[in-house]
């Protein structure tokens, strides 16, 4: 059989107005329009969304698991980026 498999698409759904689109899964479709149609049928049957993005999976560049250390470890030692690092006396009031 000469059948060519449809490309894979990653599906992002905005759950409610004001929220970010979130990755919900993937599906196969011949083109973007069909990917949106299928995403509607598969991922929003219970009013889970108000907007859909579809992106060809092949267009996504991901960080590799082996880079986890160099990418994310440096943030570990920079706890002063969080407000809780600083003790503010109670007398000062809400800050």
């Amino acid at each position: 059989m000469t059948h060519k498999q449809w490309p894979l698409w990653e599906i992002f759904i905005r759950g409610q107005h004001g929220l970010n689109h979130r990755h919900v899964g993937s599906l196969h479709a011949p083109d973007a329009e069909m990917a949106i149609n299928n995403a509607r049928d598969v991922y929003t049957r219970r009013k889970e969304g108000v907007s859909i993005w579809v992106v060809p999976s092949s267009e996504i560049t991901a960080s590799s698991p082996s880079e986890k250390g160099p990418l994310f470890d440096p943030a570990e030692s920079k706890v002063y980026r969080h407000p809780t690092f600083f003790d503010i006396p109670e007398e000062v009031g809400k800050m």
């Binding site: 059989m1 059948h3 060519k4 449809w6 011949p30 083109d31 069909m34």
Partner: peptide, 16 residues
């Protein structure tokens, strides 16, 4: 269903 899958692929290629 093969003709349908192929038809959609052909349409997608033409549109592209």
């Amino acid at each position: 269903g093969a003709w349908f899958r192929e038809g959609l692929s052909a349409h997608a290629e033409k549109a592209a």
